[in-house]
Design a protein around this nucleic acid. Sequence first.
DNA 1: AAAACATATAAATATATATTGATACGATGG
DNA 2: CCATCGTATCAATATATATTTATATGTTTT
Lengths: 90, 90
Amino acid sequence: MVKALADENRLRIIRSLAAGKKSVSRIVEDLGISQPLASHHLKELKRALLVTIERSGPFVYYELTDRRIVSILTELNELAAHLLATRKAF
Amino acid sequence: MVKALADENRLRIIRSLAAGKKSVSRIVEDLGISQPLASHHLKELKRALLVTIERSGPFVYYELTDRRIVSILTELNELAAHLLATRKAF
DNA sequence: AAAACATATAAATATATATTGATACGATGG
DNA sequence: CCATCGTATCAATATATATTTATATGTTTT
């Protein structure tokens, strides 16, 4: 699960999905990445159970399985900011 | 930072350090990994500001910079357990 | 059924990261 | 000062993962 989070593009996808359910093409234009790349990362997120799928016509909508992931990532972000701000040296 | 967490051995090191400051050799025997490998992972954790160093004679003690990382990892673990328990299919 | 669109998969490549084995460095005790 | 112990670094290798390009699959519309 942590590995699924350890990628810039997947974190961006999660951040994008925090606003709600989205189709693949919507994610593609939101992030400005190629469609196969988006598909690949969505597959990884799904494998980690972080997102769920919903088909509707030709569209496939992805949605966060559990919004707790967003708050956990927020905590991690705050911790990182704090560590950066208070570190002694580079 | 998430990348620093995305490794089995590094998670084990953090779990081990949750009990308190430890020397490299202590970590090596705790985890049963080679000394260079432990050194390598400790370096990564340090790079991510997750651990701090303290030298004492020939020993180098590593310590968690901030214990919040432990609770965040606990939350992640609980979320993972929950997602696994409630998933619809494999 | 053909065309158009949305998404997924496959193959190829590139890149990053983990691991091992050998060795260097630094501190300590004899 | 030499030997030893703890730790770090280096080089080599293995493995995993991201990215791209091309193509396949499935759905809708006409």
